[in-house]
């Protein structure tokens, strides 16, 4: 054999014993999750590589789609519906609304379809399954970074320099990801058992596009503000606009508080449901 001799393992009595029994799988779950963090990195890296290898246009997709959407939404909300812009160029309002929305869409879609998309792994190898939806967020985050990098010059072109508010942007990115992951965990775990939930995702996103203030601003809609605040993404959109447009729009604080609480509840319940159903994934996927 051409391989060099390797060290023999230590006596079994010195090795850590792992006990498997019904209902015991959770014992080392969080420790295992940490141990498998490299795998999460690899899966994220795989998704990114594949995305940019398969699509010739690669990065261009992350640009073309929001650009077209910006034009359309500006036309519909700004020109046809004549929504108030409060002195900010309408295309910028829309662009800054689309940024978090696209991030959410990508992350939610990715996490939501992650388990079924990786079913060949789940039925053949052990690892904490939470890794799968979490690593699916990476592609969305990369697309967001590309789009953000291209949006900043556009904002500057209109003469609106972002101020210190920009420093708070990561907090809103995090909030978006928490919401997307929380909802994605529910959907992906449910999809394992009921494939119907695949069709629910586009439906949620279609409605979400309108009940999230992507194409309009909430601070000029006092009557609807509280209702819109029930959607945790409203505060995220408001917040990102505020960060990117140098504080020229307002953040509705009660809305933000609601959003954070909702996001936390979504994530906690999502993890709870995911963990509860996780042990049967391999049997039914």
């Amino acid at each position: 054999m051409d391989s060099p001799a390797t060290a023999t393992p230590p006596p079994s009595s010195e090795l850590p014993a792992l006990v498997l029994a019904a209902g015991r799988a959770s014992a080392h779950y969080w420790r295992d999750l940490w141990r498998y963090r490299e795998l999460a990195g690899f899966l994220a890296w795989r998704d990114i590589k594949v995305r940019y290898k398969q699509a010739v246009l690669g990065i261009a997709w992350a640009v073309v789609q929001p650009a077209v959407q910006t034009v359309l939404l500006t036309f519909v909300f700004g020109k046809l519906a004549k929504m108030p812009d409060g002195g900010v160029p309408y295309p910028l309002l829309v662009l800054c609304g689309l940024l978090p929305w696209q991030l959410f869409t990508g992350a939610f879609n990715g996490a939501g379809s992650s388990l079924v998309g990786n079913s060949h792994l789940i039925s053949k190898v052990y690892f904490p399954r939470l890794i799968v939806p979490v690593s699916a967020l990476a592609v969305a985050l990369l697309d967001f970074a590309v789009m953000l990098a291209l949006s900043l010059p556009v904002i500057a072109f209109f003469g609106l320099w972002p101020g210190w508010q920009l420093l708070l942007l990561p907090a809103f990115v995090l909030l978006t990801l928490v919401i997307a992951l929380g909802a994605g965990l529910w959907i992906t775990a449910l999809t394992v058992k009921f494939r119907d939930f695949r069709f629910i995702t586009p439906f949620i996103l279609q409605i979400g596009m309108f009940v999230t203030p992507v194409g309009y601003r909430t601070d000029f809609l006092p009557n609807w503000r509280d209702l819109l605040a029930l959607n945790p993404l409203s505060a995220v959109v408001d917040g990102m606009r505020w960060c990117l447009l140098g504080g020229r729009t307002e953040i509705y604080l009660p809305g933000l508080a609601t959003s954070i609480i909702t996001a936390a509840l979504l994530l906690i319940s999502g993890v709870w449901y995911f963990r509860r159903t996780e042990r049967s994934f391999a049997d039914i996927i």
């Binding site: 006990v19 498997l20 792994l121 190898v125």
Partner: peptide, 28 residues
């Protein structure tokens, strides 16, 4: 079950040492 992909319904397994399982060639 030994590879921890699925859980047993009853009974107990003790494994001493790192386990690697190869249930399929080229998984992933």
């Amino acid at each position: 079950i030994l590879s921890r992909i699925t859980e047993p319904t009853a009974g107990q397994i003790t494994l001493r040492g790192r386990v690697a399982s190869l249930l399929e060639v080229g998984t992933g």
